[in-house]
Design a protein around this nucleic acid. Structure first.
Lengths: 109, 109
DNA sequence: CTAATATATTCCCATATCGGAATATGTCAA
DNA sequence: TTGACATATTCCGATATGGGAATATATTAG
């Protein structure tokens, strides 16, 4: 076996920075492919390919409007990532509190 | 270019499900390599390789104790993932509220 | 129908991957 | 020192990748 396909789940799809850029950009409002191309300064085929991956894992939805394809984020598909990372939230909070305590002790409080 | 290296950042490192399993397991308390091997039923070389990737991106720290290497999570390194996913939280919350409203309307409330 | 616009697909290739198997390194015990 | 235990590294091969370039498909305008 090799590395899991980028289309195997949201974790793999989102590992690619350009795909996160695309999601960030269309989060504000739905966008056509050419808007994405212009905004992110990527090649059109590249954007289409990234969108295909995002669509395959359910991270985006599309609708046609004339010749344009309008893509929008399906935020629910990002939730599993948030949930997994959230299980570690308590740990870094704890760590931040300790760092703060140490800093205060050093500064003589 | 090909796909970005698994060691290029936390997003790529964490895309591999076994590495998430490892992080989940050692989140509770630091663990030796053989404990991870036993708990997750993976081959020892495989675990060592995964740990190397995790260490390279700062997701784990290690200390030696005799012949054992004890690995622990560095939760702070997961925070960027949580922060990125959190920017979409409002969107799915909104969506969930709408789903609930529709359900209530249908059931005659 | 034809041209123009918008998007998708295909082909090519250098690259990194993960698992498996074998082996190397490091540490302790006797 | 030797052997046993714990972990790391190396070599292998099948596989999927992402960018570039070229081309195909789809829709609208004229």
């Amino acid at each position: 076996m090799a590395r899991a396909a980028t289309t195997s789940d949201a974790f793999n799809a989102v590992a690619e920075p350009r795909r996160r850029d695309i999601l960030n950009y269309i989060a504000l409002q739905e966008r056509s492919v050419s808007e994405i191309v212009d905004a992110l300064e990527l090649e059109q085929p590249s954007v289409s390919k990234h969108l295909k991956v995002l669509k395959e894992v359910g991270l985006v939805d599309v609708r046609r409007e004339g010749r344009q394809m309008l893509y929008r984020v399906n935020a629910m598909a990002i939730r599993p990532l948030w949930e997994w990372t959230s299980t570690f939230e308590r740990m870094w909070r704890h760590q931040l509190v300790r760092v703060k305590e140490i800093a205060e002790k050093k500064s003589g409080l």
